[in-house]
């Protein structure tokens, strides 16, 4: 049986030649295992300008030969001027035995009389030999589909581009966003704080505010002078602090309790005059003024550069 099959294969040429065209059908193999796939290459070689009607294939060639894949029709022109048309079909069969690949017809120039056909083929589809006495084997694991980089490359690149754009956006936002304004610090005077305070206290004395029934103004100015002095001398933000907070901060700055007690009484008296319409007695006004002046005198610390200047003068 097999010898007959090979003889038939040898006899079948697979190509037909007309005067101006040649049609060929070439199979990879004529003996396959059930379900195996083989290539069927169909080629038409035209030596003139004839037109050929290419056969249209659906999903089967015959009932037992199935088409798995059909390539696009490829046209090339040889150097000698012939035009070669080529198409590859991937075919398979799920029946065993001899299958006939029938002749495939090509019609030229829309003329039903100008028809060339390929030679028929016999394809032997063999079964998988079953070893009856062998152990039963487990079914094979599913094949791993190889990762298709080409398919995913577009999405990967798009993702990378998106990430880059986000990073760039965040970077540009941070670089060019409006920087929050820093609070404007109160400018520190060039002259020593105690000098300024004592000078302002002297000016306040000369204004004679409380003597002219302007007690509230007197205490507003007095407390402002002393709080400004504290701010510049001890770096305590006394102008933004209440009396209690100021005293607590000065305690942390190392001012002794006796001085703080007197200062607190003075500031509390100022609070009464400022916020409670309280009219202190003249001796209380004098005492508060004296407390403020004494606090400045007792806590003045001459800055180092001033000390150096003094020494230079003396030297």
């Amino acid at each position: 049986m097999r010898k007959l099959f090979f003889i038939l294969c040898l006899l079948s040429s697979g190509w037909v030649v007309a005067q101006d065209a040649t049609v060929t059908a070439v199979l990879d193999s004529q003996q396959i295992l059930i379900g195996d796939q083989i290539n069927l290459d169909l080629t038409v070689e035209l030596r003139d300008n004839s037109k050929v009607a290419w056969p249209f294939f659906k999903d089967t060639i015959t009932g037992q030969l199935e088409i798995v894949q059909v390539s696009v029709l490829d046209t090339t022109v040889k150097e000698t001027g012939e035009t070669v048309l080529h198409q590859r079909l991937v075919i398979t069969s799920f029946d065993t035995g001899f299958m006939v690949l029938p002749p495939i017809s090509f019609i030229f120039n829309d003329d039903s009389l100008q028809v060339l056909t390929t030679e028929p083929y016999l394809i032997f589809v063999s079964d998988i030999p079953v070893e009856m006495e062998a152990d039963i084997k487990d079914i094979k694991e599913p094949y791993d589909v190889p990762f298709n980089w080409k398919k995913w490359l577009k999405w990967i690149l798009l993702g990378v581009l998106l990430v880059v754009l986000i990073i760039l956006g965040v970077y540009l936002y941070r670089k060019y966003r409006k920087q929050p304004e820093e609070p404007v610090a109160r400018p520190k005077p060039k002259r020593p704080a105690h000098e300024l305070a004592l000078e302002k206290l002297e000016e306040l004395r000369q204004k004679k505010l409380w003597q002219n029934n302007r007690t509230k103004e007197f205490y507003v100015e007095l407390s402002d002078i002393i709080r400004e002095y504290i701010e510049f001398q001890f770096d305590v933000l006394a102008l933004e602090m209440t009396t209690q907070e100021t005293i607590a901060s000065l305690k942390l700055a190392g001012i002794d309790d006796e001085k703080l007690k007197r200062l607190k009484e003075m500031l509390q008296m100022a609070d009464l005059a400022k916020f409670a319409k309280y009219q202190p007695l003249p001796n209380e006004n004098e005492a508060c003024f004296e407390t403020a002046r004494k606090f400045v005198s007792e806590t003045l610390v001459m800055p180092l550069d001033e000390v150096n200047k003094e020494e230079e003068k003396e030297g």
Binding site: E182, P183, V184
Partner: peptide
């Protein structure tokens, strides 16, 4: 807040 030197709080 910017009128009180607190521009950092504006946003």
């Amino acid at each position: 807040p910017e009128e009180y030197g607190l521009g950092k709080l504006k946003d």
